[in-house]
Design a protein around this nucleic acid. Structure first.
Ligand SMILES: Nc1ncnc2c1ncn2[C@@H]1O[C@H](COP(=O)(O)OP(=O)(O)OP(=O)(O)O)[C@@H](O)[C@H]1O
Length: 785
DNA sequence: CCTGGTGGCTCTTAT
DNA sequence: AGCCACCAGG
């Protein structure tokens, strides 16, 4: 029916949409309509090609992207009668869905009731195991072990091979031991971690021709968005699923590959052509999203990557405004500016979609506060997601335990929460007994309370508390069964848990003001549960949803302002984008600064950030910033330096970095400034090292005088000094971290650190081209830049 | 033996 | 800011 479906496509896009049979690889830059092509292609298959919707699978990278695509597809199909729905899902949700049906075919002892362990759960399990076999976290961090496990699984190799090929370590055997225990534990607990969801599906398809054939037949048409961010394991899954029909269409942009840390491998693009030699390759080159200026800035930045395929991207959109550049005094000033600007923008156009994008979730807090202060409603998409909050996980852990008593991690989480007198010692004893008898914690508790296993010494009281706990869980199980046929099986069960466990009472009685917010969150959890009440296997689905979804189900979708990391912004677009914290060490992140490979990934991330903007782009950085408990100055981001200054409009309220650069266009020292990025990076790393030692210094209680000095100098970086000595010495008073200064010999430099008082005031200054120098203000003839 | 408070330590990105 | 280890008090 809708010929208008394909009316607004350019030639190449059209080709991509109507090439429905066989493998297709679409490679294209940001905003060229890749997602749109997939969306329309899906609708086209259904409306024009009479493909039955449930024969279509579209894989996206995040749940959010899946929701958005689903919505768009349905919008395109409003006038089409459909008998079923296409499956639009993330890899993880898709695999969870398959395994819920088929996992028993794997014959590894897993049952359909398997639990899903999120990263937190799996980390906890690793920590427990390490404690059990007496490994100090200082020798080997649990996080590291977790990443090794994940790496091996996602790359589709054994842990040993992964370690040999990929990671430097002398603890191979130790790690192997932990991994072994970890997998064993998961199997016994009937639990899968995130990576297992995909891995087990791949194994199932590999070993079982029948099951594989069944899903090949079911998903005749498969599409994958953000293909550049798939990893080898996911590619294996794609190969298996497309074995028969080969109707696979993937879209991606190598410049937007930003998930290497999840073992995404850009080689998947090359391997796609290898595995599907008949693949039709389509390139889209027209950008429909952004203004020329925004595109130019993005291109200019990404050009600095060595590892990059040349790509054309052009637009017919107008030139548009320059990007606004704001150098803030400090991080609060930055947030204040962003909030007040947003207020102005919304006053003029209340419908404007605005995003504040940052590198790490930790940066969100200040912007939230500033927006609240201006009474601007916002929506936050975060990793510290709703379902990962402590109170939510506590309650969902009860749910999980009820459904799967073998789930040790969940049991450990709830057994003394709220506190009921089962402490570390008792728990440890239960663990030991469980280990000795090779059964789960829950089974051990059953045995202990039936006095089939003894519990040490004065166990009268302990035994009683354990019996009570057992009774509690058993009564909740019965309740769950009773409710199953009632009107609200999920939400009522939650309410029961909150009441019966005493969790709600604990929060109500609490003096901690934060607990009120926790109660509210729990209310929201119940709200979310309502929508699962009338589903077939609602409780199960609700728990899977909680495990696999990071965004809360807040209904403030309609809010115009969104706060999120650049990673979560991938694939989205906004009229106005604020790209904040553009400082070396933040964006690019300090951990990426050492390696070219990582820097290039950060640069791609920056490219993603810039290209989210349709019309307006704001770029901000702060002169100084409080990080741990200290204040220090950051160099502007390498990426900021790579942007063409002519396309930035400086709206700073202070003498900004950009203005200093521009006013010194013909100064020799300035030219160095642009080239010597890595030199100054070294200096900053050096600075961090020194900062560490000065902190140690501070702890030296014997030297109280120096300590005092140090405290003063720290204070002075914030406000003007309340110190007589300084006031009598106007020269020393002039320079603070974040200031640019001119030195006779070294030229322009950035003050990183200030110590000492009065005549003894010393500054640590980074001079591009010369590195970091310690200078006594009194003797150096410094000028403000 | 349990609990709650304190202080030190370490900060990415996400399913 | 959160997670852990440690300690005093019950
Ligand atoms: N042929 C077209 N005519 C008009 N607008 C288009 C056309 N193709 C795409 N667009 C618009 O361009 C914008 C970007 O499209 P889309 O999000 O699909 O791009 P993308 O390639 O997936 O981008 P990214 O790689 O950044 O995720 C959307 O607003 C879309 O509606």
């Amino acid at each position: 029916m809708p010929s208008n479906l394909i009316a607004n496509l350019n030639e190449r896009q059209l080709e991509a949409v109507i090439t429905t049979e066989g493998p297709v690889l679409i490679l294209a830059g940001a905003g060229s309509g890749k997602t749109r092509v997939i969306t329309i292609r899906t609708a086209y298959l259904i409306a024009e090609k009479n493909v039955r919707p449930h024969n279509i699978l579209a894989v996206t990278f995040t749940n959010k992207a899946a929701d958005e695509m689903r919505e768009r597809i349905f919008k395109l199909l409003t006038n089409v009668k459909i008998s079923s729905n296409p499956l639009i899902s993330t890899f993880h949700s898709f695999c969870a869905r398959i395994l819920r049906r088929e996992i028993e075919e794997l014959h590894e002892g897993y049952t359909k009731d398997f639990a899903i362990y999120d990263s937190d759960d799996s980390l906890r399990l690793i920590k427990n195991i390490m404690k059990q076999i007496n490994i100090d976290e200082k020798t080997l961090s649990a996080k590291f072990v977790q990443s090794v496990i994940s790496g091996a699984k996602n790359r589709g190799v054994s842990v040993a091979d992964h370690l040999l090929e990929y990671v430097k370590t002398d603890k191979l055997n130790l790690i192997l031991r932990i991994v072994d225990a970890y997998q064993n534990h998961l199997r016994k607990a009937n639990a899968l971690d995130f990576d297992d969801l995909i891995l087990k599906t791949v194994q199932l398809f590999k070993n079982n021709d029948l099951v594989r054939a069944k899903y090949n037949e079911l998903f005749k048409y498969i599409m994958v968005d953000e293909y550049q961010d798939t990893n080898p394991l996911q590619f294996a899954l794609i190969r298996q699923l497309t074995e028969k029909h080969q109707n696979i269409c993937v879209v991606g942009d190598d410049n937007q590959s930003i998930y290497a840390f999840r073992y995404a491998d850009i080689r998947n693009i090359l391997d796609f052509e290898k595995h599907f030699p008949s693949a039709k390759i389509i390139k889209l080159e027209q950008n429909y999203r952004s203004t020329q200026t925004i595109l130019e800035i993005a291109e200019e930045v990404i050009k600095h990557n060595q590892e990059r395929k040349e790509k054309t991207l052009w637009t017919l959109n107008p030139k548009g405004d320059k990007a606004f550049y704001f150098n803030a005094r400090d991080e609060e000033d930055e947030a204040r500016f962003v909030a007040s600007r947003i207020k102005e923008i919304l006053r003029e156009n209340p419908q404007e979609r605005i995003a504040v994008l940052y590198r790490t979730n930790a940066q969100s807090r200040l912007f939230e506060e500033a927006l609240r202060k201006e009474s601007i409603k916002y929506r936050i998409v975060g990793a510290l997601s709703f379902y990962q909050r402590a109170e939510i996980k506590d309650i969902t852990s009860y749910l999980k335990l009820i459904l799967n008593p073998l789930d040790d991690v969940s049991l450990e989480r709830v057994i003394n929460n709220p506190p009921r007198g089962i402490g570390d010692k008792t728990l440890e004893e239960i663990r030991q007994a469980a280990n000795a008898n090779s059964v789960s914690l829950w089974e051990t508790i059953l045995l202990i309370t039936e006095e089939k296993i003894p519990i040490s010494s004065k166990s009268k009281k302990t035994l009683e508390t354990l019996r009570n706990f057992r009774k509690l869980i058993e009564s909740l199980k019965i309740k769950a069964k009773e409710l199953k046929t009632s009107e609200n099986p999920v939400s009522d069960l939650l309410i029961t848990i909150l009441r019966e466990t005493g969790y709600e009472k604990m929060l109500i009685d609490s003096a901690d003001p934060q607990d009120e917010a926790r109660l509210e969150n729990l209310n929201e959890l119940i709200n979310a549960a309502f929508s699962y009440d009338d589903r077939e296997d609602g409780l199960r689905e609700f728990i899977d949803h909680a495990a696999l979804t990071s965004t809360s189900d807040n209904f403030d979708e309609l809010e115009k302002v969104t706060l999120m990391t650049v990673h979560s912004a991938k694939g989205l677009e906004f009229s106005t984008v604020f790209l904040v914290g553009m400082e070396e060490g933040i964006f690019p992140h300090i951990r990426s600064v050492y390696s070219d490979k990582l820097i290039e990934e950060e640069r791609r991330l920056c490219y993603v950030a810039i290209t989210r903007a349709k019309k307006h782009l704001y770029i901000t950085h702060a002169r100084q910033r409080r990080h741990f408990r200290e204040i220090y100055a950051n160099e502007p981001s390498t990426f900021l330096k790579e942007m063409p200054a002519a396309l930035l409009e400086d709206i700073s309220e202070i003498n900004s970095w950009l203005s200093t650069i521009q006013s010194q266009k013909d100064d020799t020292c300035d030219r160095r400034m642009n080239v010597q990025t890595y030199d100054s990076l070294d200096a900053i790393l050096e600075f961090f090292k020194q900062k560490k030692s000065s902190l140690a210094f501070q702890d030296d209680k014997t030297n109280s005088e120096t300590k005092q000095d140090f405290a003063n100098s720290r204070h002075q970086t914030i406000n003007l000094p309340a110190n007589n000595q300084l006031e009598s010495n106007p020269t020393a008073n002039q320079f603070f971290p974040g200031d640019y200064v001119i030195h006779k010999k070294y030229g322009k430099g950035l003050v990183l650190r200030r110590e000492g008082t009065g005549d003894a005031t010393k500054l640590t200054i980074n001079f591009p081209g010369y590195g970091q120098k310690k200078i006594i203000v009194k003797y150096a003839d410094l000028k403000k830049a």
